[in-house]
């Protein structure tokens, strides 16, 4: 058995063990469905109406992907400027730190009032909370570009654009991917919460909020697990993209 089959086997063993322990704990401790639902019941709840959950998951996935894309675009522009000029970086710190530490649960009403309810609020919140990690990754990655390579670029008077696109940006890619993996979880939380709290018409968060209000444990837990599955799919897609784009990076090489 080769190394990747072995690690695949152990991941499966871990996943099966997790599900079995979860199922056993819920049954043995007789946990109420609203507090924690057994995996078997989540599966049967999903199987009762898969189209309902899948269409909500599709809405949440769109909120997540669009929000992350906007955050990444803003972070690349802002991060390039911050990496090029240190005073800019210092000046941006208060705003970045404030966005990172302020609980978004607290200001969702303002977001809803500014952007309008539903999709705009969800996309805005996803983008807003994920920008700082992308900015820090972009700035750190760009600053970390090989100094000898920077001199080499300078030795033939390469333009700022060439330095940015051919040296700084590729150097920042590994850090940006790491931030993306962190931001998938963060953004998914923001999307789920904003859909529920900012009056979306559909989405896993909206569905989950209604289930909560109606005290529907199986429904609520199925939306939660669908959101988790969405996160796993997003992480997997990121890993595959990373393997393809960062073949050259040491993180992607076999030991």
């Amino acid at each position: 058995m080769n190394r990747s089959s072995r690690s695949g086997l152990w991941i499966t063993v871990g996943a099966v063990a997790l599900v079995l322990i979860w199922e056993a704990l819920v049954r043995l401790l007789d946990v109420r469905p609203f507090v924690l639902l057994a995996p078997s019941r989540i599966v049967s709840s999903f199987a009762d109406d898969p189209g309902f959950y899948l269409s909500d998951a599709w809405v949440t996935a769109r909120h997540l992907v669009v929000g992350l894309a906007i955050a990444l675009a803003i972070a690349l522009v802002a991060g390039s400027a911050l990496a090029a000029w240190r005073p800019f970086e210092h000046a941006a710190q208060p705003a970045l730190v404030l966005v990172m530490v302020t609980p978004w649960v607290a200001y969702i009403t303002s977001v809803r009032l500014v952007t309008g309810p539903g999709t705009p609020a969800a996309v805005f919140l996803v983008a807003f909370v994920t920008i700082p990690a992308f900015v820090y990754a972009t700035v750190g990655g760009m600053r970390g570009a090989d100094p000898a390579a920077r001199e080499l670029f300078s030795s033939v008077d390469a333009s700022r654009r060439e330095v940015l696109l051919r040296l700084r940006l590729p150097s920042a890619l590994p850090a940006i991917f790491t931030a993306a993996r962190f931001n998938v979880g963060l953004g998914l939380g923001a999307a789920y919460y904003a859909e529920g709290a900012a009056g979306a018409r559909s989405g896993l968060g909206e569905s989950g909020f209604r289930a909560s209000a109606l005290n529907e444990g199986p429904w609520l837990w199925t939306t939660i697990l669908c959101a988790a599955m969405l996160g796993i799919v997003a992480q997997f897609a990121l890993i595959l993209t990373e393997r393809r784009l960062l073949r050259w990076h040491q993180s992607q090489r076999r030991a």
Partner: peptide
């Protein structure tokens, strides 16, 4: 001279771009 690419530079580290 730099702007006209009249000088080829070989730094101490190879400084190859890994990508």
């Amino acid at each position: 001279a730099k702007g006209r690419k009249r000088v080829g530079f070989v730094p101490q580290a190879p400084a190859l771009l890994p990508w």
